[in-house]
Design a protein around this nucleic acid. Sequence first.
DNA 1: GAGAATATGAAGAGGATACTCACATTCATT
DNA 2: AATGAATGTGAGTATCCTCTTCATATTCTC
Lengths: 207, 207
Amino acid sequence: MSTRIAKPAARMRKQPRQARSIATVEAIIEAGAHVLSELGWAGFSTNKVAEAAGVSIGSLYQYFPDKLALVEAIRRRHFDHVLSVIREASAEEKPLRQFARELVRGMIGAHSIHPTLHQVLLDEAPGDRGSRAAHASFQARYLEHYAAAVAQYRNRRKDTETMARVLSSAVEGVIHNAARRNMLDAPELQKQLVELISAYLSGSRAT
Amino acid sequence: MSTRIAKPAARMRKQPRQARSIATVEAIIEAGAHVLSELGWAGFSTNKVAEAAGVSIGSLYQYFPDKLALVEAIRRRHFDHVLSVIREASAEEKPLRQFARELVRGMIGAHSIHPTLHQVLLDEAPGDRGSRAAHASFQARYLEHYAAAVAQYRNRRKDTETMARVLSSAVEGVIHNAARRNMLDAPELQKQLVELISAYLSGSRAT
DNA sequence: GAGAATATGAAGAGGATACTCACATTCATT
DNA sequence: AATGAATGTGAGTATCCTCTTCATATTCTC
């Protein structure tokens, strides 16, 4: 990656300049992700986020003009993370099984801290204004990566997109479910998930 | 369906006796499922449910002592439905592919009306008091059915439970996702889901 | 030490919530 | 047709949270 440009800065009321304020903003976003994942969009209130961040509510509004701007910041951070994971797993050509293993490892990593954040972000949290576009674009790129993998391991040209959709939602389903039951670390679960992916992509031809 | 015995009646303030009130209660439960699925536990308010049911808020409290009793009624109805679907699909011995097809068809049917009800019921909605037990018991029986199917098509004795877990959550994930995008009826999606199940259960033996 | 950056939290203004109750309507039964 | 039970109504209560602001206090940079 070329020199990290401070991201387009998501709608902010004021740019943090000192190290102290940068840490504050970071804490707020992190706490926001936590609250969002734990309580859902329902329980996501600015007061709770501030408290969870160990910060005054005033500080929150010092940097985020409103609730939505905060959600957008959280969304952006999470999406970036997830995309990088898939990109890495599907980079280079590698044996199917290895791809599956890396994908599972990466996805579990991306969800183990905030188990349901992904779901909430996609399904519950509203995305008014410009975020609608970013949202769709994330979904598209997300699926693209899966589709690329499918195309690579499956010679059939048809149904690639559908397969990508099925695969991604299956993986998400398993991980989400495991997270809810604190089973994300169970190695046999990881193994079985790898198995599921491999089986589907290698395609058993039994009737 | 054999003669439906009026279920043990979930905690109710008053038993509906006339046809009119039975219809009212039914409308309330149905509307409740709708609201719960559409707005999540967050947006689930008794006032909204009453309005959606086309009934006065007073009528709701005529039969349900409080919000939780209503959720329990909704939960009970949905769980019964889902269980019967799995039971039917995994009844008798049948070829793997046929089992998969029937399972997919049934699960899609059970989720097409209230796409996310299942998730909300399991993850978000609280279950104080005695419902905790019913909740766990449902989960257990739910998994049992999957496990039975896994055991039937897979000779390996090990990991049956994990496989059941993986399978069920994968299926749920795909269906939930498809529902959110109004793709539940897409035949190629159904086909691919059947494929996924079959592939996993018939087990590709590549390392 | 001056001025900017950062942090605070009580308070305002508004809305939503679960639930009650006194009353109106409709039913089943005679 | 009449009577009492069953059913239905919805304005109203009290409570709790919400998002956000602002005047003030602290901490940093230079």
